[in-house]
Structures are given as structure tokens and as C-alpha cells.
Amino acid sequence: MKLKHSLFTRRQFLNGLIGGWVGAFLASLVYPVVKFIFPPYKEPDEVILPLSDFQDMPPNSVKNFAWGSKLGLVKKNDDGTHFAFVGVCTHLDCNVAYMDDQRKFFCACHDGWYDENGINIGGPPPTPLRRLTLVITEEEMIVKKESPEETS
């Protein structure tokens, strides 16, 4: 049945109503499923490492630590200061290696290069390695989320 000025029949209206309602109901069931499937990832705000692990590093070398589930790198510079990086290539997420003889970080996946300060200098990486802030206390090395520029 269709009224004179109506755009659709009563049947179409009811079918649409029921269909929409069923759709909304199913969506309310699918939503929690989708939410559940993706585990939350929370980057650590800071990671505290014992300083003793890093004291005997020679200059111009790096040492690994766990930055959440990512590779973290502490690099000791020639002047004895330390830098901390997220050791993950900014191109496609591979872990990078430090080539101390060339004073460069190297990503083997797609031949990406960063200089000793983590600046991208060759290959596909679009941005520098992510720097983390290092605070060294008497016994601990505290790695913080912000980049050194933000803190200073």
C-alpha cells in the first residue's frame, strides 16, 4: 500500500525500519569484537635502567635496551655524553644497527642510512631516528619519552 504523496510503500518503510534496526543491533555486537581484537599498545613514559650496565661502554658504541616492545639504543659519544634513540627505522619499522667504523646507523631492510646523531642521510628513511631524553642520576639511567628538544 502506498499513500498518494508518499515516497515509498508501507512495506518498504517497514522493511527499512526492521533492516536498520537489525543492522544497528548487529553493529552493537560487532563493535566490542573489533575493539577486543586489537590489543592496546602503550608506549612507556620512561624506562629506568641501572647505570652500571652502561658505564663501561667505549666511546662511539651503542647498547640495546627495551623501550616497551621496541628496540632502544643508548649511544656513547666521543665526548662521553650519551644519546638515546628508538632503534627503529622511520621507513618501514625495521631495527637499525650502528656501524661504528662508519659512524652511521644502518637499516638493512631497504638500505637506509642515518648519521651518528640519528639524522637520515641516505636511502628511503623520511625522518631522523626518534631521539629520547636521557637523564643520568647517580645510579640510574632514566630514558624519557620526549625528544631532547622538547625538554630543553
Binding site: P32, K35, F36, F38, P39, P40
Partner: peptide, 9 residues
Amino acid sequence: TEIPLGWII
């Protein structure tokens, strides 16, 4: 505790 809506599932 951690997974979104995990306790309901």
C-alpha cells in the same frame, strides 16, 4: 584488565 572489553568477552 588490559584488553579493550576483554572482561566482557
